[in-house]
Computed example of a mutant assay.
Amino acid sequence: METVRFNPFHQVHQALRALLYHASITVQHTDFTQEAQAGKTITLIEELVNFFEAHAHKEDTQVFPLIAAAAPELVADFEAQHEKDHELGEELVDALHDCRNAVADLEKKLAGKKLQRALNAFTAFNLTHMNAEETVVLDTLHREYTDEQLLEREQQIVASLTPAEKAFSGFWMLKGLAMNEIIDWYKKIQAAAPPFVFDEFMQLAEKALSTEKLKTLQQSLNFSLA
C-alpha cells in the first residue's frame, strides 16, 4: 500500500503559487495611467520578487545541501534553474523601473504591458520549476531522509525567518491552502505553540480568510477571536 510521504515543499509552494496567480490577475486589471492603482501593483510585484528570491536562497542553502552528495548533478541543475529564475526576476525589476518612471499615459500603458509579459514569463518558469522540485527533488529527499528528518529541517527553516517573513508567507499560505489543510496546520499550532503565538496566527487568519472560512476554522478549533 502506497503511503503519503511528508512534502516539505508543499505549504510554501502553495503560498508562492497563490501569490503568482493573484499578481497575474492584478496586473491584468491595473490601469497604469492611474497612479494609485499602479503604485499598489508595483508594491505587490516588489513583494513577489523578494519572496521568491528569499525562497530560492533558503532552498540553495538549507535544502539542496541535504542531497548534494547523493545527487550532485541534480543539485547543480536546480541551482542553475535558480539562476535563471533570478534573471527573470531582474526582468521584472526592470519593468517595475519603467512603470515608476513613465510620464506620459502612453509610456505608462507600454510599461504596464512590459510588466505583464515579464510576469507571464516569471510565472510560467516558476510553476514548472516548482512542479519539478515536488517530483524529482522530492523523490531524492525521500530516498535519503525520513519524514521526521525532513520535518525537522522545515522547522529549522521556519525558525530562521524574521517575524515579517513569517507573517507574509503565512498570509499567502492561508490564501493558497485548502481549508482542510489550514485546519490541520492550525490544530498543530494550537497543540504545540505558546498561546500568544497561536493568537498571532489566528489574527493572521482573520486578515487572510473570508468570513465563512474564518468561521469554519474557529469552529474546528473551538476558538473565537476576542
Rank of each mutant, 00 (worst) to 15 (best):
E87Y: 06
P195Y: 14
L141P: 01
N50D: 04
E212A: 10
L138I: 04
A208Q: 12
Q190K: 15
E73Y: 01
E144R: 10
A36P: 01
K166W: 06
K213M: 03
V93W: 09
H29D: 14
L204C: 08
K166N: 02
Q37I: 10
F64V: 01
A178I: 13
Q190I: 11
A23D: 09
K215A: 03
K113D: 09
R153I: 05
A76Q: 02
K187A: 12
R17G: 09
A23Y: 03
G89R: 03
T26E: 15
V27Q: 05
F201A: 12
F122E: 05
Q149E: 13
E90S: 10
F125W: 09
Q11A: 05
L92Y: 08
L88D: 06
D85Q: 06
Y21C: 08
P194R: 14
A36V: 14
L119V: 04
F122W: 00
V4D: 14
A54W: 03
K114F: 07
A205I: 15
F201V: 13
W172C: 01
F171T: 03
A192L: 14
Q190D: 12
A95H: 06
N131Q: 14
Q81R: 04
A159G: 12
Q81P: 01
S224G: 06
A104L: 13
I67M: 00
D139R: 14
L106S: 06
L138A: 06
K213L: 05
E181K: 02
A178N: 07
N50I: 07
